[in-house]
Amino acid sequence: MFDIDQSIIGDVDVNLAAALLMGGVLIMTLWRSRSGKKADTIFLFMVIAAFVGAVAGLVIAFFEGPESPGSLALVVSIETILELSITIQLFFLLLYVFLTIHDNRDYLIRRMKFYMIPLVILIVLSIVNIFTGIIWYYDGNKMYHEMGLYTVYNLIRYLYLILAIYQYARYRKENGQARFFSIWFYLVPILWGTILEWVTPISGFILGNAIANVILFIMISQKVGFTDEGSGFFNIRYLKLLSEKIKAGEYEPHLLIRYHLPEKKDLSDFFRMLKEILPDQCDTVKLDDTNCITVIYGDTRGLINMLSEDIRMISEELCLNIEFDYVVKQRDETPVKFFEKNVVIGG
């Protein structure tokens, strides 16, 4: 039997730091208000799995080694939980990336069988390993050893990471940058942790993973600062960011809808219905209590008729006097010029 004989005694400080970071992210995720998006629920599951892994990594540091308390069975169980939590977390990462970029449950369901295959294989292998030690094992001194199959096990697990990168890259190629999300910020700490674990006896992966989750959480939370609580649309702070993105060529506005909202009216139903009728390729910004704009990307002149009918229809249905007008980008106008001419930032 091929034995890599790479004993890693968990570094308590590193594992404690990872567990604390993940605990913090978990608490913040639970506390954070929900946007109602499907990806949010998956993110919570992902954080729970990462937290369980970090805690397991911390706990096992106390039970490994000949001098440590606890039985061999206990150490094996905790290590199994640790390994499975990493696998499950990466599985949820793929689901999270998928739902973040596509926001479509059916697309995911149609792929679920395929996505489940590595997970099922790894769960079965983990269970078999408990009794056979074919992937990793603890010797009589409760020292950890990896077998050659561990590399294969890891590769199967990293399939999720590769699929997540593939989905993200494909989406970016077809649709441009996803809002408030980038997979690269998540990958860098993971890769750093993995390399650290290869070259040192420190449990770098757990720490790298925790840092990746913190970064991802911060990235997602950024959106909250730009969101108007009452309407769920962006707030005026977003205009500056939007202007930068337009200057950078990430978005090309072609059409602007300006709404004049009635004062002292409950507009929650209007905002909800407006979200339903607006196309995906737009941003709506609530400027103040009575003014709101929608910036639409793409050559959209043909939309004016349909959107006018829809906005009038929901205004009538809700008995609200919503005034609105359009500004269309002229053929010889650049998107930047069009935006700057019609939207006063900070005004």
Binding site: P279, Y297, G298, D299, T300, G302, M306, L307
Partner: peptide, 22 residues
């Protein structure tokens, strides 16, 4: 159907129909 039409118009996919949105 209207929701889909908006998607088509925004992506410039109107096939043979210049007046798809109407």
């Amino acid at each position: 159907y209207r929701s889909f039409l908006k998607k088509c118009l925004i992506k410039g996919k109107t096939g043979l129909l210049e007046d798809l949105g109407y």
